[in-house]
Nucleic acid binder design. Structure first.
Lengths: 131, 131
DNA sequence: TATTATTGACGACAACTGTAGTCAAAAAGT
DNA sequence: ACTTTTTGACTACAGTTGTCGTCAATAATA
């Protein structure tokens, strides 16, 4: 399992797209990726089925092609992804991230606002303190 | 390649340890992981050799066991890891990370300081503006 | 309904990963 | 120098992931 939660990179790309465009049929997804990444229709199908087996997608077998719907919210998934990444790849340290932000990472106005509020609120909660 | 830069998760664990304890011999690393993760000596050897082939380690074949040294700084590697993660897994958006911080992620005093300085400095640089 | 196009279930496969045993060569100890 | 350990080069192998082709079943069309 490449990424956290047992989702591989290729699967994540597919799942993310579906989270932004659901319900979606294999063909719709395939058409999308045909332009960018280049995934054959059957590859997309395989990936989508694997995601379904893993519980990230569900499908409605009505008339015509099956329509897939995500079973996890995009925000939730990303949250998990971040948590796992920090834990597994950064050994729990957030410094690299902060450093990344310092070095030119662009933040949207909203993100900056949230960060400001966050910093203000956490002013008195040093690492290790109890909640 | 699980993680960015062609380093797999298992390899990353090994490399990280070596970046914190170098130069290191296979046995030293193996002894360390024998306690925690449970990697057989030869597994560690294999992983270290793969890292060497990928250019992340170099070894000194002097007297006794070979001594391995990292060829990339830990901070640099993590920087790359973060960049790649944000790009590949979050589609370039930092919101999930900010959200992660908001939801209880603990920051050290230093990290918080850096973040504060950062927020202050970026106050007038909305997303999309030129450097 | 005959014909044509679309779908999806399967099967395949090579590359990559995690894991480690074997065994000869080299080093250390006596 | 002889024996015992330790090393490391190789080999192996199963599971995962990325990628699709085939082909029969369905659906859409003429």
């Amino acid at each position: 399992m490449g990424v956290a939660s047992g989702i591989t990179p290729a699967e994540l790309a597919i799942l993310t797209y579906i989270q932004d465009h659901h319900p979606a049929t294999v063909r719709e997804v395939a058409d999308h990726f045909a332009r960018t990444n280049e995934y054959a229709r059957t590859t997309v199908l395989t990936l989508m089925e694997r995601l379904r087996q893993k519980g990230y997608l569900e499908r409605d077998e009505g008339t015509g092609a099956h329509r897939y719907t995500p079973l996890v919210q995009k925000a939730d998934l990303q949250q998990t992804l971040v948590r796992d990444f920090v834990e597994r790849s950064l050994g729990g340290s957030l410094s690299p991230f902060v450093a990344f932000l310092s070095q030119g990472a662009k933040l949207s106005t909203e993100e900056l606002e949230e960060l400001k509020a966050l910093v203000k609120g956490m002013d008195t909660r040093p690492k290790g303190s109890q909640e």
